[in-house]
Design a protein around this nucleic acid. Structure first.
Length: 192
DNA sequence: AACGAAGTCAACCGCTAATTT
DNA sequence: GAAATTAGCGGTTGACTTCGT
């Protein structure tokens, strides 16, 4: 397929950090015309950026109701548990954390939580594992959400279908009360 | 104070999935 | 149904900041 249509080709486009002026232009345009057809957004908003870049900037920083920093203990715990269940499906995890973006959660995981996990759960067979694998970025997560299960809608080896359990199509279920149910189930499945 | 190492995070890249023509 | 286009995702990079010596 031709998925590289959005790459900067001949024309030089701005790259790197966004300026306040660019942010303003993008936010203003989207406020009026909506967030769709990012390629044309980039052109019509007068931004010398690729559509992808505009989309990312909007979704991660300019969108209303974005929370920045200060991830609470509750949120952290939720991320840990969802990651245990879902693996590196950052967008799904982010979808359960109102105001948080997949990029932020991914960064938070990579810089904070992955270390925490490694400290808490040292690999049982470190010596043998080192010989065979060039230190995979994911370890225990891999086994819990296999590629096959991802393709089949998130059903893990336990037969637990996360996409059935969470209604990911719903944007309204941001409350945390659902988590109690999940945590009870999670404890039973993974901490036995 | 200076410098290198380590940590953080915004942004980009490559790819697939979904949608449109 | 095929091809083209658009949207979205996760992995990775690199600039910047903070920390330790």
């Amino acid at each position: 397929m031709a998925a590289k249509n959005d790459q900067p080709t001949k024309k030089l486009v701005n790259r790197g950090a966004w300026t306040a002026e660019e942010d303003g232009k993008l936010a203003q345009y989207i406020e009026i015309h909506g967030a769709k057809k990012w390629k044309s957004v980039a052109v019509k908003a007068g931004l010398n950026r690729c559509g992808k870049s505009c989309r990312l900037r909007w979704l991660n920083y300019l969108r209303p109701n974005i929370k920045r920093g200060n991830i609470s203990d509750q949120e952290e715990d939720l991320i840990l548990r969802l990651h245990k269940l879902l693996g590196n499906r950052w967008s799904l995890i982010a979808g359960r954390l109102p105001g948080r973006t997949d990029n932020e959660i991914k960064n938070y995981w990579n810089s904070h939580l992955s270390k925490k996990i490694n400290q808490q759960k040292p690999k049982p067979c470190e010596s043998s594992a080192e010989k065979h694998e060039p230190e995979p970025q994911k370890t225990w997560e891999n086994t819990e959400v296999s590629e096959e299960s991802k393709k089949e809608g998130g059903e893990s080896e336990t037969g637990f279908n996360v996409d059935d359990f969470f209604d990911f199509s719903s944007e309204e279920s941001f409350g945390l009360e659902w988590m109690n149910t999940f945590l009870e189930l999670d404890e039973g499945l993974y901490f036995s």
